[in-house]
Amino acid sequence: MADRELVERAKRGDQEAFEQLVLDNQNRVYALALRLVDDREEAADLAQEAFVKAWQGLVSFQGESSFSTWIYRLTTNLCIDYLRKQKRREGVEPAVSLDDEDSGWLEPADWEGDPQRLLERAERGRALAQGLEQLSEWQRQILVLRELSGLSYQEIGQTLDIDLGTVRSRIARARMALRKILLEDGNFFGYVPSNQTKDQDRG
């Protein structure tokens, strides 16, 4: 059943329809939470909470974005709140709250047919996941906020309480670190399509 229809039914109180939405999105939502807070139990808790909030807020969900986008944003917000609370306990004041605008959001990929391509993409996806795990916590968090949660530099700056210049340089450093890890891994860049440049990249 199409996403849109599930949402419509869930809005009218159909819990089974909502449960299907949960099942459809749970892995990606959980993965997002896990990559942000780095704690399985907490991630599960936050991810579930996000869905509960989505249920509670369904009545006003207009559908300008997809349900997936929306639940992703809810999850991000909850995770950020959690991370701030963690920081607060260590004595660091939380940053200004996030702007709620949807911005720069990367829609999750639609699977486009060709099995060979799908396989390559899946392999790269797995290599990327492993590479992310090897990053330091701040590197992973900032990349996840940018690439998965789709936050703008400004929103990231507000979240982490750093200025734009710092956001920019940290994201660059995180990307370079990830690139280095993936180069060493060997599985990732082996799949770079041949129409891309074959220049030497000496790291």
């Binding site: 892995n27 990327l128 690439e147 990732f188 440049t197």
Partner: peptide, 24 residues
């Protein structure tokens, strides 16, 4: 070198779309 860095960063960006899910 930098051209290669550029294309590799772009490839990483694209790959986030296919980032492996973690089963709930």
């Amino acid at each position: 070198d930098c051209r290669a860095v550029g294309s590799r960063l772009a490839a990483i960006r694209t790959a986030f779309d296919d980032l492996e899910e973690v089963p709930a």
